[in-house]
Design a protein around this nucleic acid. Structure first.
Length: 465
RNA sequence: GUGGUUGUAGCUCAGUUGGUUAGAGCACCAGAUUGUGAUUCUGGGGGUCGUGGGUUCGAGCCCCAUCAUCCACCCCA
């Protein structure tokens, strides 16, 4: 038996980590609910067919596929061997795999809407908080199993949805203490207009992939990459003018309007951005014409949320408008727009910035000390009356030195020690000790409940991990 | 998928050009102290040196493979 281990890129979450993650989940959830979104959950696995071809070539490669059962059955042998041959040639074979772990929450959601559009009330606003899996090589802020929190609105083209989603980003990040986040926003229509302007509509994806890297690799390397991707010098020159558009949001919009004049797509995209920044005036929106985003189903507004600049971390959220996602599943005319929070990255950022409040480390309120066989029976019955009032407490599991029982209470961040020895038993009293202040007093048992109510939770961070 | 980094006690890490029986701090257990958390003192348990091969009289150290980790690329949350 070898040492137990975890698959690459997956993690166990200790109690402290779970509490911190729950703090993020509940914050996001309450904001989603506040904006009228309803919960949805879908299975961990989907039919492979549902997922393939939805995330681009690279995305397909990163989908975790599940091997079919029963391949070793003799009657499946030729089928299995044929399937394997296909696999070696780089093709998927339903003979070998027909299910896969979900890669994101948006496509399964589109599948759900396509299957249930008859029953849903539109616009349908749903949120979903579930793990997803990607067969990527792990590194900083990147895991093979991670949790996404999505909110999407389908069945509406109204821009007010984009406004609401922007405000949701703002509300969540403010509540979590990430005040200096930034929300980059752009519109695919503007990118399309750029491609049209230089007669390069067929190269739209190449252009967006290259310019998306601007802040990372610099203008020279972007130009190099554009050249490699087959763009001519005059096209690149125009793209450079596009990339040089700067200033505050208003200035940028005016400049891009001039640069991409007489183009319907550009006009539409610009008007949409203008509406969003005007109505969602509270959010930290930063128009960024270099924002492109990989997923090729986006058609209008695109979002990307960035951690405060002082933290080295990629995007902590993203989303956009997709005007016909359910068409992939045979149901057309259901436009939608959605956003996603990357909880695992938000966690890492908050951890690095020390933003978790201390009061999330809730623990049991009191430890009843075990002073012997008879004493512990008595303590147990007292404790049960306290538990009936909804106050969390524990009885130390065995008779042990007080030193040990105190240390246990310390480690579990328990505020009160309740000591009932033979003397206290005889007088129907107990010793109540506040472990933070060290104060202790002997009180009648009837007063025990009240003493808990008047005291707040411990506020120290437990050192257990 | 490509390139690099690291892997020694529960945790953080030393370990010399390859050379006796692999160390420290913290943590843990017992006692000094059988009704009060600290400190101090005394004693104690713990390791197939990530795993599997190889070179060598001899490997924690060198070589190969493999797994995991962290980092960069690609891509992405």
């Amino acid at each position: 038996m070898s040492k137990p281990s975890l698959p690459q890129g997956t993690r166990d979450f200790s109690s402290e980590t779970v509490r911190k993650r729950n703090h993020i989940f509940s914050t996001i959830k309450s904001v989603f609910e506040c904006y009228g979104f309803e919960p949805l959950e879908t299975p961990a696995m989907e039919n492979l067919e549902t997922l393939m071809g939805k995330y681009g070539e690279e995305g397909d490669r990163l989908i975790f596929k599940i091997l079919n059962n029963g391949l070793n059955d003799p009657k499946n042998e030729t089928k299995a061997k044929e399937g394997f041959e296909k696999l070696l040639n780089g093709k998927n074979s339903s003979a070998l795999t027909e299910r896969a772990l979900k890669y994101d929450l948006t496509i399964p959601f589109a599948r759900y809407v396509a299957m249930n559009h008859g029953q849903l009330t539109f616009p349908y606003k749903r949120y979903q908080i579930q793990p997803v899996w990607r067969a990527d090589r792990p590194q900083k802020g990147r895991y093979r199993e991670f949790t996404q929190c999505d909110a999407d609105v389908v069945g509406s083209t109204a821009l007010i949805n984009e406004v609401e989603l922007s405000n949701i980003y703002h509300e969540v990040f403010i509540r979590l203490g990430l005040n200096k986040y930034s929300l980059k926003i752009n519109n695919r229509k503007i990118l399309s207009a750029l491609a049209e302007k230089i007669d390069g509509s067929n190269l739209l994806i190449d252009i967006t992939i290259a310019i998306d890297k601007l802040d990372k690799i610099g203008i020279d390397k972007v130009n190099q990459e554009l050249m490699q991707r087959g763009l001519a010098q005059n096209q690149i020159d125009f793209i450079n003018q596009y990339l040089n558009v700067n200033g505050d949001n208003q200035e940028k919009l005016e400049k891009i309007e001039k640069l991409l004049s007489n183009n319907n797509q550009a006009t539409e995209g610009i008007n949409e951005l203008r509406y969003i920044i005007q109505v969602a005036n509270k959010a930290n929106i930063d128009i960024d014409f270099t924002l492109a985003r990989g997923l090729n189903y986006y058609t209008g507004t695109i979002f990307e949320a960035k951690a405060p600049a002082e933290i080295q971390m990629g995007s902590i959220g993203g989303g956009g408008r997709y005007d016909n996602l359910t068409a992939l599943f045979g149901v057309s005319n259901i436009p939608g727009v959605g956003i996603s929070f990357g909880v695992d990255r938000i966690y890492d950022v908050m951890d690095e910035m020390n933003l978790f409040p201390n009061n999330i480390y809730s623990s049991v309120r009191a430890l009843f000390f075990n002073m012997g066989i008879e004493e512990s029976k008595f303590s147990y019955s007292v404790m049960q009356t306290v538990r009936e009032k909804g106050i969390a407490c524990e009885l130390y599991h065995e008779h042990a030195k007080l030193d040990k029982q105190f240390k246990y209470a310390d480690k579990k961040n328990i505020l009160f020690a309740v000591i009932i020895g033979s003397q206290e038993m005889n007088s129907n009293t107990c010793i109540l000790k506040n472990l933070q202040t060290g104060e202790q007093q002997q009180i009648p048992l009837e007063e025990l409940l009240n003493s808990f109510k008047n005291n707040s939770r411990p506020l120290t961070n437990p050192n257990t991990h």
